[in-house]
Every structure is written in C-alpha cells, then in structure tokens.
C-alpha cells in the first residue's frame, strides 16, 4: 500500500501542489472578499444577507474541487494509459482489484487533504465575523462542491480506464448529468436534505473505475 502511494505521489506531486495552491489561493481570496465585504458594509447587513438570503460568501470556491478532482484523475490515470502502463500495476503481486483500489484511495486521500487546509481557512475566517451556525452552514454548502470533486475524480478515472469509446461517452454523459445537480443552488442549507443521497452516490461511484480497470485487464 505504501509503495502504491509512493508511486502515485512521485507521479502526481506537481499536480497535487498545483491543486493545493489553487485551493488555498481561492480560499484565501474568498476570505479576503469576505473581509472586504465585512469592512464595506455594516455587520447587520452582512448577517442579514446570510440569514434571509442564504448567502454563503464562498461561492467563488464552488467549481474548484470539481476541477481538482478532474485534474487529479487525469494526472493519475493518463500516464497509466500511455502504452497501457497499467499492466505494470496489474502484474504486481497484489490483488488486481486491491491495486486499483489503492490508486483510488490515494486520490481520495489527496483530494481530502488538499481541500482540508482551504476548508479550515474558510471556516476559521467565517468564525471571525459570524456565529458557529454560519460556519457550519457554510461547510454544508461547500459539501456538495467538495463531493463533486470526488465524483469528477471517480468518473475521470473510469472514463480513462474504459476501453470502449461508447462506454466512455456514456460515462461522460452520466457524469455531466449528475455533477450538474451538485451546483443547483447557492443558498446556505438548501442541500441539507439531499446531501446524504449525494454522499451515497459519490461513494458508490467508487465502483466505476474499478470495473473499468477490470474490463481493461480483460482487454474488452
């Protein structure tokens, strides 16, 4: 397991650095914007925008996890497809499904750890100007966006590992159709009731790249 993580780290570290910097920079920018807003308008108006209009103030961040997930998926699996290098992994003396799962676990862990400092920054900043309810609501608002990153990651991996173009197109369509639903509403709390379904769906999407890799192995 460590070895696969080591390989993935060496392979993708420059991309991970890029994604981390992008997350952090965007979070910082969002925080600065919040600071600016809090300076420009009186606090009651800013709170009112949250309480009555459901403003989260962090909408700048929304598409970043999606792109991060896409980029990481490509950074991890495109090199595995050049000359069908994935064969090297599948030939390693560990179970094939386990080997692919390790790759995906690395991606998941990366996406989580990349988002973590950004979330922490945004949470801490939110607590400076807002009560905890806002900060928690803000995190819940960010949750579908973060999930979209995982979804994009699983789907990009599945699409890349998939051999047949028809299946690839199908996967892309499904991914686009679903991920759009993660960006329907911006107001705080509106995703509360569907978040659990989205989490379940994203978790279930884990199986797609694994099945794609098994089809890859069988050469179909």
């Amino acid at each position: 397991m460590k070895a696969i993580f080591y390989k993935e780290w060496i392979k993708t570290r420059s991309y991970i650095a890029l994604i981390t910097v992008a997350h952090f920079a965007m979070a910082l920018y969002a925080v600065l914007k919040l600071r600016y807003i809090s300076g420009q308008y009186d606090a009651v108006s800013v709170w009112s925008a949250w309480i009555y209009k459901g403003y989260s103030f962090y909408s700048l961040y929304q598409y970043l996890p999606l792109f991060g997930g896409l980029l990481l998926g490509c950074a991890q699996f495109m090199p595995e497809l050049r000359d069908r290098r994935l064969r090297l992994v599948l030939h390693l003396p560990i179970g094939e499904r386990r080997a692919v799962t390790m790759h995906l676990a690395f991606g998941l862990a990366t996406l989580l750890s990349v988002a973590f400092p950004a979330l922490l920054l945004m949470y801490s900043a939110a607590r400076v100007w807002f009560p905890p309810e806002f900060a928690v609501g803000m995190l819940l608002t960010l949750a579908p966006w973060i999930l979209s990153g995982f979804g994009a990651y699983f789907f990009s991996a599945a699409v890349l590992l998939e051999g047949r173009w028809t299946r690839r197109i199908l996967l892309v369509l499904v991914a686009a159709g679903v991920l759009r639903l993660f960006f329907q509403e911006l107001s705080i709390g509106s995703y509360e009731r569907v978040l659990a379904y989205f989490i379940l769906w994203t978790a279930a999407a884990f199986c797609l790249p694994i099945m794609s890799s098994e089809r890859f192995r069988k050469g179909c």
Binding site: A3, K7, K11, P79, D83, R84, R85, R87, L88, L92
Partner: peptide, 24 residues
C-alpha cells in the same frame, strides 16, 4: 514480465523505481 518497448514508469528515477518495486 517485460512489456514490449520496455515500458516503465517514466516519472521515477532509477533509485525511486527500485524502491517502488522492491517492496513487492
């Protein structure tokens, strides 16, 4: 198993790739 064209991981250097494979 040697894949045709001596396909290996290009992003490793010689000691990194040894470290990777040796653990298996």
């Amino acid at each position: 198993y040697l894949i045709e064209g001596h396909v290996q991981y290009g992003f490793f250097n010689v000691s990194q790739i040894e470290r990777f494979y040796s653990s298996f």
